[in-house]
């Protein structure tokens, strides 16, 4: 009776034509790629936000002792490459130097002008030279230009990761559509019988879509589970770069640094793609029946 009930719920025999092996395996591989890409996008976004502060000030100019601050600011603001020039807050400088000089700083602090550029220069050294020529005695520090370049690179990586994610979703949709079409071809007669018995398009498409969503969700879940330790491994390798230490065992990996919210969304998002693809494919095919 159990077998009869199971078959009764599956009159189209979809358990056989949409088997629980090939489609979940294919989607699982794509889920793995999506999880890695997602983590890459998240990592690039984290780097970008970390570097954003450094890139805001592209250049710093340290004035010579006794130099006229107002004149230097006026000269710098007149340069077309510079969007904004402002004197660094002495209190902030003191706070930055506190770890080395202590609370009571006895020596006079240099005057520093922070520059925000209109656009990144092709040759930062040449720009630094021009500034030094216009503001005699000034020392120009251009590390912010390189930080801004790294920021642009991180943002590009983020965009590429999002594009790759869209591509993976597109390929998954195509694979699912092919699988559904194969299922339709294998069950064409059964679909025709159900249609003749008064089944609606929604009923027939819903049976396919339910099965496909389950298989695709299952595959994406598997892919995500496989991706998790790989991502934790990457996070562990990157840990020393941000002052952490390398893990000694599997449980010691930095699991908390994984983008769990995004990863948790992958299986339901994949299931939704499967459900919509199956619905659209079936309904388009069913339109040929009267």
């Amino acid at each position: 009776m159990t077998l009869r009930r199971a078959r009764g719920r599956d009159p189209l025999g979809l358990r056989r034509v949409l088997s629980d092996r090939l489609l979940p395996a294919l989607v699982g591989a794509m889920g793995l790629l999506a999880a890695l890409t997602l983590a890459g996008a998240r990592g690039a976004a984290d780097l970008a936000s970390r570097w954003e502060g450094g890139a805001a000030t592209a250049l710093t100019v340290q004035l010579a002792p006794g130099a006229a601050t107002d004149r230097a600011l006026a000269v710098l603001e007149a340069m077309p490459e510079i969007a904004e020039a402002r004197l660094a807050d002495p209190a902030r400088l003191a706070a930055l130097l506190r770890p080395w000089l202590g609370d009571a700083i006895a020596i006079p602090l240099p005057k520093v002008i922070e520059l925000r550029l209109a656009r990144l220069p092709a040759d930062p050294a040449a720009l630094a030279g021009r500034i030094a020529a216009l503001v005699p005695g000034a020392q120009v520090e251009a590390h912010g230009v390189w930080v801004a370049r790294l920021l642009a690179l991180a943002r590009s990586l983020q965009a590429v990761a999002v594009a790759a994610l869209v591509l993976v979703a597109g390929i998954a949709t195509a694979v699912i559509a092919v699988a559904v079409r194969a299922g339709i071809a294998a069950r064409r007669d059964a679909i025709a019988v159900l249609h003749a018995l008064g089944a609606t398009d929604a009923d027939i498409a819903g049976r396919f879509a339910g099965r496909v969503a389950w298989l695709v969700g299952l595959g994406a879940f598997g892919g995500t589970v496989v991706a998790a330790p790989i991502l934790a491994g990457f996070a562990d390798m990157a840990a020393p770069l941000s002052g952490g230490r390398v893990a000694e065992g599997l449980l010691d990996l930095p699991w908390q640094r994984l983008p769990w919210a995004e990863l948790a969304l992958l299986p339901p998002a994949a299931a939704l793609i499967g459900w919509v693809t199956a619905q659209v494919t079936l309904r388009l095919w069913l339109r040929r029946l009267p």
Binding site: R4, R7, D189, V193
Partner: peptide, 10 residues
Amino acid sequence: RLLPHLPVFD
């Protein structure tokens, strides 16, 4: 036009 994968009852 019976469905070959289903028993008579179904």
